[in-house]
């Protein structure tokens, strides 16, 4: 058993060809997932059972099942359903990229909505009471007091979820997508050098994680200036 460095030098540029796809999966599903999460969170805290129950069931299902199963249901399962094949969203499900986006978005949306809810719940009640006593309406309190404080409180957990999402994009390789992991698996199948290829790939992911962590840390410090004495 030996470590073949020429293999790495050969493989890394090829793997990096997939970074664009990895990045697209990450950004598109993070943005869509955040929008979804805000909606679900608002439903969850609305205090109306016909809104909060569906939200809770959605969260329960998507947090309680493996994301790989979710990806397979969307990619292999949905095309089997007549009403999906006949609807306008069919092009989305015919394409593995669309399926990966749908599954990743739905999955991260469930987690992020709970993170956001945690932030909203973490806002000191006394602060909101002060707003009430000053005559601010429910809407004004939510926009000017709850939201900015909740966002700051939720940010560290949200950062962790973005990193989880980056790691989950690797699963897109299981439905034929040639993201970084997909390309690496193809190279391994040809060269049968899993150590060299997979370790190089792991290092690339770690660098990406590190960059994400640093930038989120920066945002956190910026939004948290008011917390420093």
């Amino acid at each position: 058993m030996s470590f073949d460095f020429t293999l790495i030098i050969d493989a890394v540029p090829k793997i990096l060809l997939g970074i664009g796809l990895t990045f697209q999966l990450l950004v598109v599903s993070a943005v869509l997932g955040l929008v979804l999460a805000i909606g679900i969170m608002l439903m969850r805290i609305s205090g109306k059972w016909y809104l909060s129950w569906p939200a809770q069931i959605y969260i329960y299902i998507f947090r309680g099942t493996p994301i790989l199963v979710q990806i397979f249901i969307v990619y292999y399962g949905f095309p089997q359903l007549e009403f999906i094949r006949e609807s306008f969203i069919w092009p989305l499900f015919r394409d593995p990229f669309g399926c990966a986006i749908v599954a990743l978005t739905l999955n991260t949306g469930a987690y992020v909505s709970e993170i956001l809810r945690g932030g909203v719940m973490g806002v000191d009640r006394g602060i909101l009471e002060a707003g009430t006593a000053l005559g601010l309406s429910v809407r004004q309190r939510f926009i000017h007091l709850t939201s900015p404080i909740a966002i700051r409180l939720a940010l560290p957990a949200y950062g962790n979820d973005v990193i989880s999402l980056l790691k989950s994009t690797a699963l897109a390789s299981t439905i034929t997508l040639a993201d970084m992991t997909g390309i690496a698996r193809t190279i391994v199948a040809q060269t049968f050098a899993p150590y060299e290829i997979f370790i190089s790939l792991a290092i690339i992911y770690m660098i990406l994680t590190w960059i994400l962590q640093k930038s989120l840390g920066r945002v956190e410090r910026h939004l948290g200036r008011y917390m420093q004495k």
Binding site: I127, A130, L136, L145, R152, Y226
Partner: peptide, 27 residues
């Protein structure tokens, strides 16, 4: 009717000046 609380309840994410301006502007 104004109210002053035991735990102050200032808006932590705003400067002192903004704390004083917020309700004037909105309400």
């Amino acid at each position: 009717v104004g109210m002053v609380f035991q735990s102050f309840n200032l808006f932590p994410h705003m400067t002192i000046l903004k704390n004083l301006m917020l309700a004037q502007r909105l309400v």
